[in-house]
Amino acid sequence: MQPFTYVRASNVGDAVKALSRGAKLLAGGTTLYDLMKLRIERPERIIDINHLGELKHFDTSGERELVFGALARMSEVAADAGLVRDYPAISESLWRAASQQLRNMASLGGNLLQRTRCPYFRGGEPYACNKRDPGSGCAAAEGLDRGQALLGASPSCSAVYPGDFAAALVAFDAEIDVVGPGGERVLPFEELHREPADTPQKETTLEPGEMIVRIRIPVTPLGRASTFLKVRDRESYAFALASAAVALEMDGDVVRDARVAVGGLATRPWRARAAERLLIGRRFDESAARAAGEAALDGAIPGRSNAFRIELGIRTVTDALMTARQRA
């Protein structure tokens, strides 16, 4: 790990001012410090923002929107009774991530910026990686690709975006408030992450010096009949092979509104609007759920050993929708 200067910021303005080139914000540290140990992140300055009390609060009781400060901890938000009752998909996406220790540390804002678990990215030398070392190539392209992305990949990068919470956020049309040198702006969450294309090192649309301060989710009746389903190689404490955040609003047996997003399969949080269109206005049954799953995975491009995750993704969406239907 490279040496760095450690400073504590006492307000958002100071933090943003200090966020010069070579500086990184430290919230939970579960991604940043981890990647610093791997020498993948090499900040010259660490700005500890954990004392920005203004960003720690969250409120799920509002009439128009749910508001989460970027420093709210994953574990606390996951346990919020209102969220558990009215937006189970959001709560589940949080408590099915990582471990309770890591959820006690990790902030919501930091979680959104969690970086990929692609082993070629994390492995460092000798593996080529365009994300870690732009222009060096992609070792995963001809490598072991069981865990690589099927959606949104490019020849230069197939690294999966690993976050669970993001799948729920993208499904519920979340917005994020961002503060930067030019002031504050609102960004639809769906526009935060970029597909790799030929610049996989650019993972988000945040401008230099910008920080996420808030996450807002519009209140919706879809929340109650929602779920986040995560399939992985063991029962807990593992990243998703496939996941789905889904929500239904029913009118009898007919779907009035639907939300479908998938995780663990794509290079960025992945909203599946085609699946939603297929469901809306249609009588819900298992075949409709399956059709939605197929639509969600439409366009998936398999590699050598990850093709099973297309079918797994379809079934994950299907099963999640069946669960959501029971909650409707």
């Binding site: 040496p3 760095f4 200067t5 450690y6 504590r8 200090a18 300055r45």
Partner: peptide, 16 residues
Amino acid sequence: TVTLSQAQPRRATASL
């Protein structure tokens, strides 16, 4: 606590 005003610019310090 190290506050921003106390922080040394750019150059990384070794110990704290």
